[in-house]
Design a protein around this nucleic acid. Structure first.
Length: 490
RNA sequence: GGGCCGCUAGCUCAAUUGGCAGAGCAACAGACUCUUAAUCUGUAGGUUCAAGGUUCGAUUCCUUGGCGGCUCACCA
């Protein structure tokens, strides 16, 4: 039947009910129990005991299946993700109640009251003696057995995806649990959660194109933040010793299975730590959360066996390129030979400096091959404008990236707190920025803040969406973002 | 943005070489007071993503466009 006809049928039922004085959208229903608690209480009881004691139940849920049976019938309701069978009999429900039962469709919300029982086949059920319509659905739900597979509908109408595919609900519960776990661990270690501007007059803290917007009253162009970094470090200047922010960043770049224009980032900063201490803490934080949420530190992600068992491997970028990326060691001391070797392997490094070449090679040759977590350290200085250099090694910085399951999951470093050095490095970045990167101003206000003195500190940023992908074995970032950005359908 | 693939009933999917567009579920009518992917009988349901082209004839072939997926390049 055409969709319009299916809707018409339900509309007619709705009008028929209303003409008989039924309120199809009542204000409230006093629920006394849930499917989960009911199952917890009575699942273990046998048929005889339920028959003798006849416990009563009053609950509500959405009809997800119906099986008519003449002057009787069965329905399954879903409430909080759990299902329960209803048993309806005309002689128990009465004529009016049974008439309502006949007009109820899959998708409708109902409230009900009755005796808890078990059927002959042992299925815990409620023999309904009072049925109340709580909300009439006028569109048909996706099919019960095959669920909803059309990716476009799944993303555009996520509510249908959640309705039809229970594992999708689990993914987003896991997401919530991860975020809860991260907050709990940080809170327990003296970090305080802060909120810094998402609309910034000067954007910074990362290399990416921003979204722009405008404040009318101030007649001021603003940028949606690409990172909260520079504001969080201002708070270290202000005397907060440990801060974190877990919220959205916005980057006006491509969309892919790993990128959504708005994505969730956890950034935190600890005074008196360096990047080494931060790596230790990151290990502890992630293993704790993964173990709590997934139940084990050995997970499977897209057919890879990943172990978060500590300690995690740590390699300098050059060692990683040799050991994991397969770069011949002798090429590392010969820029042009390395360039030729990389280009042969389709790593586009034509106009790059040595440092940017290493970074590009890392992304192409190392990252995809990493399964269990690996910290890569000693990044080239030119690509890291906020990281302190390694003592005696001005070309490398005290910075690490965390790779896992072929994904970049985190990025952290010892923060520059010398205002003179920070200015130089920002100016260098403004001149030597990689091709295709928009002009970036030196954030004078940030330099000014550093001049008041920032304690030595380390900071880190975690891509939360990717973390959730790992924990839920999701192949695309769109599977872990409830409403990913799609082109509007005209 | 480039390349490849997809779009058929509300949902999940078929359709031979280009030859009457079909099934299951859902819906509707009927039967059925312990079913659970209920069962049985019957009925109805289509702008085959859109526009154009080739053809006697297009879901099928071609062109353009829309939307989506994967992938490559930039970004986490």
């Amino acid at each position: 039947m055409a969709e319009a006809d299916l809707i018409d049928v339900r509309r007619r039922k709705l009008e028929d009910l209303e003409s008989r004085g039924v309120d199809a959208y009542p204000r409230r229903f006093e629920v006394e129990t849930t499917v989960a608690t009911l199952r917890g209480l009575y699942e273990g009881w046998d048929e005889e005991r339920l028959q003798e004691e006849e416990p009563r139940a009053r609950l509500a849920g959405r009809i997800v299946a119906q099986r008519g049976h003449g002057k009787a019938g069965f329905a399954d309701i879903e409430d909080g993700g759990r299902r329960l069978q209803l048993y309806v009999r005309k002689d128990v429900l009465g004529d009016d109640g049974f008439a309502l039962w006949k007009q109820v469709d899959v998708g409708d919300f109902v409230g009900l009251e009755g005796a808890v029982m078990k059927t002959r086949s042992g299925e815990l059920s409620v023999r309904v003696d009072a049925l109340t319509l709580l909300s009439k659905a006028i569109r048909p739900l996706p099919e019960k057995w095959h669920g909803l597979k059309d990716t476009e509908i799944r993303y555009r109408q996520r509510y249908l995806d959640l309705l039809a595919n229970p594992e999708v609900r689990e993914t987003f519960k896991t997401r919530a649990a991860i975020i809860r776990g991260l907050r709990a661990h940080l809170d327990a270690h003296g970090f305080i959660e802060v909120e810094t501007p998402m609309m910034q007059p000067v954007y910074g803290g990362a290399v990416a194109r921003p979204f722009t917007t405008h404040h009318n009253t101030l007649d001021l162009d603003l940028y949606m933040r690409i990172a909260p970094e520079l504001y969080l470090k201002r708070l270290l200047v202000g005397g907060f010793q440990r801060v974190y922010e877990l919220n959205r960043n916005f980057r006006n770049e491509g969309i892919s299975t790993l990128h959504n224009p708005e994505f969730t980032m956890l950034e935190f900063y600890a005074s008196y730590w360096d990047y080494g201490r931060m790596m230790e803490f990151a290990e502890e934080l992630l293993t704790t959360v993964i173990e709590t949420v997934v139940g084990t530190v050995d997970i499977e992600f897209q057919d890879q066996e990943i172990s978060f068992q500590r300690p995690w491997a740590r390699l300098t970028i050059t060692k990683a390129l040799v050991a994991i990326g397969g770069v011949p060691e002798k090429l590392l001391s010969d820029t042009e030979a390395l360039r030729a070797w990389l280009i042969e392997r389709e790593v586009p490094v034509e106009d790059m400096s040595y440092g940017y070449m290493l970074d590009a090679a890392l992304g192409r040759l190392v990252q995809p091959r990493v399964t269990s977590p690996v910290f890569v350290t000693h990044f080239p200085t030119e690509a890291s404008p906020f990281s302190k250099t390694v003592p005696g090694e001005p070309e490398s910085v005290e910075r690490f990236e965390l790779f896992c399951g072929g994904l970049e999951v985190a990025n952290g470093y010892s923060e520059i707190n010398d205002s003179r050095e920070q200015r130089l490095r920002m100016e260098e970045m403004a001149v030597n920025r990689p091709p295709d990167v928009p002009e970036m101003d030196v954030d004078e206000d940030y330099i000014h803040a550093l001049e008041y003195g920032m304690p030595p500190a380390a900071g880190i940023g975690f891509g939360i969406d990717r973390l959730v992908m790992l924990a839920t074995d999701s192949p695309s970032i769109r599977d872990v973002i409830l409403f990913p950005l799609l082109r509007p359908k005209s």
